Amino acid sequence: MTAVAVDGNAQAIAITAGEWTLRVDPRHGGMVRALTRRGADVLRPMPEASTEPLESACFPLAPYVNRIAHGLFTWEGESHALAPNHPAIAHPLHGTAWLETWDLAEHREDALTLTHAHRADARWGWSFTARQTFTLTANGLHARLALTNTDTRTMPAGIGFHPWFARRGVEAIAFAAQGVWLGDEAMLPTRPAPADQLGDWSAPASLDRPALIDNCYFGWDGTLRIERKDGAILLESAGTRFLHLFVPPGGDFFCAEPQTTMPDALNRPTRDQPGTRALAPGESLTLDMTIRSA
């Protein structure tokens, strides 16, 4: 096992198994800085001097995912107002854990565990702990995110991972879903549409698109196949109903984010379909993600 200095304020920790190497920054948001297979980037590598999460290879989403419209929502009869949490985005997004310090709890040659504790404050009014476990095998990466309510009250909860896949060498992607949420100019969901509304991904399809895709697919079957020139890769997240796809035209990356809820789930008419979890004190919510060779 090795530790690699990134700059004066950050440290990346590397683990390796077979042809795979993972580099993680536990200090800044529990971010993944790189994931490679046979030396080729599977996830977009983070610039060496950067600690900006939006330049990372992957980060955790907790205790909510994507945007909360205007930071306003009501939970158990109480109104809540959250301020924007990133200067580039008008609405608070992705929770709080991606912007906070994590601790290294365990480090082995092929695995590591990070932990984070949040005390209720203006950014999120409930206390919680989060735990990320990364394990490499000869076939790829398995990651688990666990969120535990350490508050005395029931907490709304949604979690996910935000991997930024390297686009170089990617020829097509394919996945199955029941539908997609269309969004407005602020990338907030407006109405559901058939899964092929923005393009048919049920068979391998190119990422070359004339318009931005930043939309959440629901009824996802838990598998996304990435056809690459150096061999296909699978993203898997069993039991996760939502896949948020972000494909900027001409970008050198794309994001395929397994999530337990849709964006702005706290403000949807019903909580059943969006998947917001009412997490009782002491209760945990977990999500697994695998990125592996097909």
Rank of each mutant, 00 (worst) to 15 (best):
M1T: 14
T2E: 13
V4H: 13
G18L: 10
G18H: 09
E19Q: 10
E19G: 04
E19M: 04
T21Y: 02
V24T: 12
V24Y: 04
D25L: 06
V32L: 03
V32Q: 04
R33F: 05
R38N: 12
A40N: 09
L43S: 14
R44C: 00
P45D: 06
A49T: 15
E52S: 11
L54H: 08
S56L: 04
C58T: 11
F59K: 06
F59T: 11
A62D: 07
V65C: 12
I68W: 07
T74V: 12
T74N: 12
G77Y: 02
G77C: 04
S79D: 14
S79I: 01
A83V: 08
N85L: 01
H86R: 01
A88L: 11
I89P: 00
H91S: 11
L93K: 10
W102D: 05
E106T: 13
E109Y: 01
D110C: 08
T113E: 09
H118C: 00
R119A: 05
A120M: 00
G125L: 04
R131L: 02
R131N: 02
Q132W: 08
F134T: 02
T135A: 13
G140M: 08
L147T: 06
T152C: 00
T152W: 00
R153C: 11
R153S: 14
M155A: 04
P156I: 00
G158T: 12
I159F: 02
G160M: 04
H162G: 11
W164G: 07
A166N: 15
R168D: 14
E171D: 14
I173K: 05
A176N: 12
W181G: 07
G183A: 15
D184S: 11
R191N: 10
P194F: 02
G199V: 00
W201E: 08
A211M: 08
A211P: 00
L212A: 14
G219E: 06
L224K: 06
L224P: 08
G231Y: 02
G231D: 10
E236I: 14
S237K: 10
S237V: 09
T240F: 13
F242T: 14
L245C: 05
F246N: 13
P248D: 11
G250C: 03
A256V: 12
E257C: 10
E257F: 05
T260Q: 00
P263D: 05
P263L: 07
P263W: 05
L266E: 11
P274I: 12
G275D: 02
A280R: 13
P281H: 07
S284E: 06
L285D: 03
